[in-house]
């Protein structure tokens, strides 16, 4: 009893300075390694899985309130939605007849030309879990991950078109870089004339830029940009953005167009991840891991 009760005259263990040195060195080493290579990915995934129940627990009140609000407004929402849908149905009726006619015609032509039919894309619906607090990048975290078949590189869409691209996946969550993130680029095509271009996340927040245009490019404000399908990741024909302005710079001989995305990642909670085949895109994934890390 007496021995255990003796007063310790000297501090045991390493000094505070030594601890600081070791821990700070470890932190800087982690920063450098995580910034350059993806060897820490398993550790991050393990921590993320451990974090997930706590994140869900803390966000549960918010989800409950949203659920309650949805339930409360369900009647009025259904009514207004019904009216909108009715109006839309009338508007779409003639278009659909026209489209059906075109589809049959197209099918016939395809058969004549022996072009393979387009396959329909399998997809997974995801819900926004939270938005990481980050000054530089526009990312969102979703509530489904590799256990639902999501992989880095898969495109994310809403009813307006392309929203972004999955850049990092853990078993239960996935992280997407939005279209407006300045590290994302998408091969696009002008709907009006089929011109192939590349759209980049803009320097102006909430905008998309089309760069490296020749000064005489046939692009006018109001043009719609759709995915061209080149590169293999984004399926062709999804709408991306509408062109706002085209700035022609006579000094360099190049033009730069600014466009507004047609999707609205800030408005909704639910999105669709298209399960495209990304297994063969090793080179691209390498680039994506850079997107995930540089975006911080």
């Amino acid at each position: 009893m007496q021995e255990t009760g003796t007063i310790r005259l000297f501090k045991r263990g390493p000094t505070a300075e030594l601890r600081l040195f070791v821990l700070a060195l470890l932190a800087v080493a982690l920063l450098v390694v995580d910034g350059r290579w993806s060897v820490l990915q398993p550790a991050r995934q393990a921590l993320s899985v451990a974090l997930y129940p706590f994140q869900r627990l803390m966000l549960a009140p918010r989800d409950a309130v949203e659920h309650f609000n949805d339930w409360k407004d369900a009647a009025s929402l259904a009514r207004s939605e019904k009216e909108a849908l009715q109006r839309q149905r009338i508007e779409l009726a003639q278009i659909s007849t026209h489209a059906a006619q075109l589809a049959t015609e197209n099918e016939q032509l395809r058969r004549l030309l022996r072009v393979a039919d387009e396959v329909t894309q399998p997809s997974v619906a995801v819900e926004v879990l939270y938005e990481p607090p980050n000054a530089f990048s526009h990312h969102l975290i979703f509530n489904k991950g590799s256990s639902s078949g999501i992989k880095p590189g898969m495109p994310l869409i809403d009813e307006g078109g392309i929203v972004g691209q999955i850049v990092r996946v853990t078993p239960f969550t996935s992280e997407a870089a939005l279209l407006t993130d300045d590290k994302v680029s998408i091969p696009v095509q002008v709907l009006r004339n089929g011109l192939r271009l590349i759209a980049f996340g803009g320097n102006v927040s909430g905008k998309v830029e089309v760069r490296y245009l020749t000064a005489n490019v046939d692009l006018v404000p109001g043009d719609t940009l759709i995915t061209s399908g080149i590169g293999g990741l984004f399926p062709a024909g999804l709408s991306v953005a509408t062109v706002d302005s085209v700035a022609r710079d006579p000094a360099t001989g190049f033009a730069l167009a600014e466009a507004t995305p047609l999707s609205h990642p800030e408005r909704h909670r639910h999105f669709l991840v298209l399960l495209v085949d990304v297994s063969t895109q090793d080179l691209h994934q390498e680039g994506l891991s850079h997107v995930a890390q540089d975006g911080q």
């Binding site: 080493a29 920063l31 990481p132 980050n134």
Partner: peptide, 16 residues
Amino acid sequence: VHDSTLLGGHALVYTL
């Protein structure tokens, strides 16, 4: 991990 930033960033600030 929660903020999906580089590992070690917050850790360094907290340690300091």
